[in-house]
Amino acid sequence: MHKRLLTVVMMLVFAMTAMAGVSLASEAKQFKKFHSIVDYKFVAKYAKMPKPKGVMIVDSRPFKPKYIAGYIPTAVSIPTSQFDKMTDKLPANKDDLVIFYCGGFKCPLSHKAAFKAEAMGYTNVKVYAAGFPDFKKKAAYYSIGIETLKDMMGNGDKFVAIDARPYKKYLAGSVPGALGIPEKEFADKRDMLPIGKMDTTLVYFCGGYKCALSHKSAVKARYLGYKKVVVAEAGYPAWKEMYGGSAAMEVKAGEAEGAVDTEWFLATLKDNPSSITLIDVRDAEEYAAGHFPSAINMTADQIEKNIDTIPTDKPIVFSCASGARAGEAYYIFMDMKPNVKNVFYLEATNDFGEDNSYEVHPNK
């Protein structure tokens, strides 16, 4: 009896050992890990603007959809699948620090790219094995592609785009619907930021990859308590190149003075929301509870105080809950800026859902 039990136990131990060996062998066969691994603290020292000299951070994931959806600030996209075709993007000095990363510990792309770079003669190569998931969890903010900002507009995501460049540049042209809050005037104009610090994404941008203003503003926003902060590093130059500058358009007016035609407004909101600057003049609490997806929030008194920050390169439409405050904002604006054309308000009663769905009922 005892011999039989001992035999069974030994067979079980043998089987478990064999399975463990197979598992380890399988894990070993997954991919060869690079010999020099770094952590978040190491990478964070270099993932900042102005960009440190002699350092390049490389995102080894596919450009679409991974890189543009979110990446480590200042990182260059060199997908491992395209590595051999994109070696010209690597530093000219092969003694520079090159840090590769991808999608986490189970992702082999950064390791493969690191071995390739080392074989090319690069002497200071590292792999951030924890990758973007780890960075996103620990960092104050991360970067996105300008394509993602465009998608956020189309999807009706809860966000506010903020131009951190000087005011004159903002007036000369900006991303549709963006607020103009120059980095140097951040403290004075922070009351223009949305009240929802937990659920509204702030998307900062400025003059392109070499511009540090959006990065500085992002850090300040996090210090104020905003939890969702990103930077569209390519900035307005990339937006203008990819989607064009603001183009003039003809607005259909409604029956009341200054009112916009409701049907025209709804069609524009559905098909081309970025073609107008839509300003919700309700209180911040009302706005946070639901609003038109492309609308920015600025109460009537804020309009009077910050009127020079409102872009005038495309039609402006003020909205509220019933048309009353929107009409007031319209007249405040026109009294202060009588020469500005294409300014309107929505003469309608509007109901909003928490998901930013809406129903618009024209006032009779």
Rank of each mutant, 00 (worst) to 15 (best):
C206F: 03
T17M: 12
A238I: 01
G254L: 04
K136N: 12
L149W: 02
A130C: 01
A321I: 05
E241M: 10
E241T: 13
T277H: 01
K32Q: 15
G323Y: 08
N272Y: 09
K220T: 02
G196F: 07
F333L: 04
S26Y: 14
G156H: 06
I307C: 00
L109H: 07
A92S: 11
E354V: 09
S23D: 14
H2I: 09
R282W: 06
V127G: 04
T74P: 09
K228G: 07
V98Q: 13
I307F: 00
S319N: 14
G290V: 01
S217F: 04
Y40L: 08
A75Q: 11
T309R: 09
P311V: 02
Y243P: 03
V230L: 11
K48H: 06
T349R: 12
C206G: 11
N350W: 10
I303H: 00
V230K: 10
A232V: 07
V55R: 05
A234G: 05
G327Q: 14
K126N: 11
W264Y: 13
L97W: 03
A178D: 03
K41M: 01
H35M: 07
G225R: 00
A238M: 08
V55M: 10
F292G: 08
L6P: 00
T123G: 11
P182R: 00
E27V: 05
I146F: 08
E183R: 00
F205A: 01
K29Q: 11
G177H: 03
A119P: 08
D188K: 06
F292Q: 04
R282G: 04
A329R: 11
L346Q: 03
F31M: 08
S77E: 01
K89Q: 15
V317P: 05
D59K: 08
A44R: 13
R4Y: 02
M11S: 12
E118R: 07
D280M: 12
A187E: 07
E304T: 11
G145E: 07
P338R: 15
I37F: 09
A238K: 05
F63G: 09
P166G: 06
D280E: 09
M11T: 08
A69V: 04
F135P: 10
S60C: 14
R325C: 09
T74C: 07
H35L: 13
A253S: 14
E263L: 07
P194T: 03
Y128F: 10
S294Q: 13
S357G: 13
Q30I: 10
D96A: 01
C206Y: 04
V55K: 02
Y331S: 09
M334N: 14
V317E: 05
S217T: 02
P108D: 03
K337R: 15
C320D: 15
G104I: 13
I72N: 13
I57S: 14
V317G: 02
A75Y: 10
E118N: 08
A321G: 14
P108I: 11
K197C: 06
P91G: 10
G323V: 05
V160C: 06
K112V: 13
T349S: 10
K252H: 11
A114G: 05
A288R: 09
H2V: 07
E359K: 12
V317D: 01
D191Q: 06
P65S: 13
L278T: 00
L6F: 05
A212M: 13
L149E: 04
L109W: 14
P91E: 02
A18I: 04
